[in-house]
């Protein structure tokens, strides 16, 4: 017989009662998800790790601040929704504060450039991806939130809607607008890197 994993709410209440294991379990449960969200905005892996840690600290602080209500109610605690929103906002603030993109194409972060690839081609690809990353971060706030929760975190629209406090239809609509906006960016990029007009 297997026991159900503890709910986020149960773990939050246990942590607030002084159980450090509950704290650790919540971190283990969501660290990959948060890391996937913030790495889009980070210039280096250690910066992504730092943002991940800060997201958890702020989510736990949110839990601590609402402690009286958490203890008195048996209701669900939206710890995951807090984390997601905090993570994407921390990431966005990181970009705003640091303006890091030109210095850190994705390949530099991930070490994904293969030495055998043509240097020019690799550079073009790195530039295109860096520009695309920038375009994503420049999306209007709601579009960016929905888009990154979908693409980076891989969440279904229903869960995205729940995390952001909007309807599922609204979430889809924001994603739809984001796709069209980014498509236009891709076209501009393609045209500028390929003046001959072949797309």
């Amino acid at each position: 017989m297997t026991s159900e994993p503890a709910s986020d709410g149960a773990l939050c209440r246990a942590f607030l009662a002084g159980d450090s294991k509950a704290f650790g379990e919540l971190v283990h449960r969501y660290q990959d998800l948060v890391f996937k969200l913030v790495r889009r905005y980070a210039a280096a892996p250690d910066e992504a790790r730092d943002l991940t840690q800060r997201a958890f600290l702020q989510a736990f602080e949110a839990a601590r601040r609402t402690l009286p209500r958490l203890v008195d109610s048996e209701g669900e605690v939206p710890f995951k929704a807090w984390l997601l929103r905090i993570a994407i906002n921390l990431g966005k603030n990181q970009v705003r504060d640091g303006a890091r993109w030109p210095r850190a194409p994705l390949e530099a972060v991930d070490g994904a450039v293969e030495p055998s690839a043509g240097a020019h081609e690799a550079l073009e690809r790195a530039e295109a991806e860096a520009l695309m990353r920038r375009a994503v971060t420049m999306l209007p706030r709601r579009q960016r939130e929905v888009f990154t929760l979908r693409i980076d975190a891989g969440l279904p629209f229903a869960e995205i809607a729940g995390a952001l406090g909007i309807s599922e239809g609204n979430a889809k609509s924001h994603f739809h607008y984001a796709v069209k906006r980014l498509r236009d960016e891709v076209r501009v990029l393609t045209a500028s890197s390929n003046p001959g007009g072949v797309s």
Partner: peptide, 20 residues
């Protein structure tokens, strides 16, 4: 175009000990 490459093993290793 917008999908990031999967986290590398070096990146994943960064999360070791994060809870502590």
């Amino acid at each position: 175009r917008a999908t990031l490459p999967a986290p590398t093993s070096a990146e994943r290793a960064m999360l070791t000990g994060l809870a502590e």
